[in-house]
Amino acid sequence: MSAPKRLLIVHHTQSGNTGRLATAVLEGALRVSETETRLLRAFDAGTADLLACDGLLLGTPENFGYMSGALKDFFDRTYYPCEGKLVGLPYAVFVSAGNDGTGAVREIGRIANGYGWKTVAEALIVRREITPADLERARELGEAMAAGLAMGVF
């Protein structure tokens, strides 16, 4: 029997909105018992966490049309130690946006391209107030990612 796949959820939250989405993403991922899932704040996640995962979900608020500084810091701290070691890593993004969120998604995608990761789901962008439907969409994202890893789809 092979070891279970590992899903890492890295996020930053300032107001709590992205944290609510991250919790919902985690709840969805935990519906898949065949995958081990960890949720870490961006400042607490590091190279060892990233190298140990088989899939990645990244959550950020939109700050000035960009990702949070904490998520950018995570990338800054892990890029060179992980360079060339995570090519093909499946990832997806969720954003709590006050505006449109596309700038944050675009810039995360540019950095992910540098790592060699592959996006496996459309970005979940929640604009303004988080609704119960948004939280359910976040759960579905987490569950789909965990299930895809467990089944070897990604």
Score class of each variant (00 low, 15 high):
M151S: 15
L149Q: 11
A144C: 03
A146Y: 00
E140R: 14
P132Y: 03
V126R: 06
A144N: 12
L141A: 09
L124S: 08
E122Y: 08
L149H: 07
A138Q: 04
A123S: 15
L124C: 08
V126F: 11
I130E: 09
L141G: 06
R139H: 04
A146C: 05
A144T: 12
A150F: 04
G142D: 00
R139F: 00
M151W: 13
E143Q: 07
A144I: 00
A138F: 00
E129M: 05
A150I: 05
M145C: 05
P132A: 12
L149F: 11
T131W: 02
A123G: 11
L124E: 08
G148F: 11
E129C: 04
I125P: 07
A147F: 10
A123K: 02
I125Q: 06
A147R: 15
G142C: 03
M145H: 10
G148Y: 01
R127K: 15
A123H: 10
E129Q: 07
E136K: 13
G142N: 06
I125D: 10
L149E: 10
T131C: 05
V126N: 08
L141V: 05
L135P: 02
L135W: 03
E136F: 06
E129S: 09
I125T: 14
R128S: 13
A133M: 13
T131E: 12
R128V: 03
P132K: 10
A147W: 12
M151D: 11
A150K: 04
M145D: 11
E143V: 02
I125R: 03
E129A: 13
D134W: 06
G148K: 02
R137I: 14
R137T: 14
A123E: 10
L141D: 09
E143W: 01
E122G: 06
L124W: 05
A146Q: 00
A123Y: 09
A123N: 12
R139I: 00
L149V: 13
L135I: 03
L149T: 09
A146E: 01
R128C: 06
R128N: 15
A133T: 10
L141R: 01
I125A: 03
I125N: 10
L149S: 11
P132W: 14
I130L: 12
E140D: 13
A138C: 03
R139S: 09
M151F: 13
E140P: 02
A133E: 15
E136D: 15
A146W: 03
L149A: 11
R139M: 06
V126Q: 02
T131L: 08
A150M: 04
A138H: 01
R128G: 07
M151C: 13
E140M: 03
I130W: 11
P132Q: 13
I125F: 09
T131F: 09
E143F: 01
L124Q: 06
M151E: 13
L141F: 01
R137V: 00
A144Y: 04
E122R: 12
I130G: 03
A138V: 00
A138L: 07
I130S: 01
E143L: 05
E143Y: 00
R127N: 12
I125M: 05
G142I: 11
A147G: 07
A144W: 09
E129T: 14
E136N: 12
E122V: 03
G148R: 13
R137G: 08
A150V: 01
E122A: 15
I130C: 03
I130K: 00
M151K: 15
E122Q: 14
A123T: 12
D134I: 11
G142T: 02
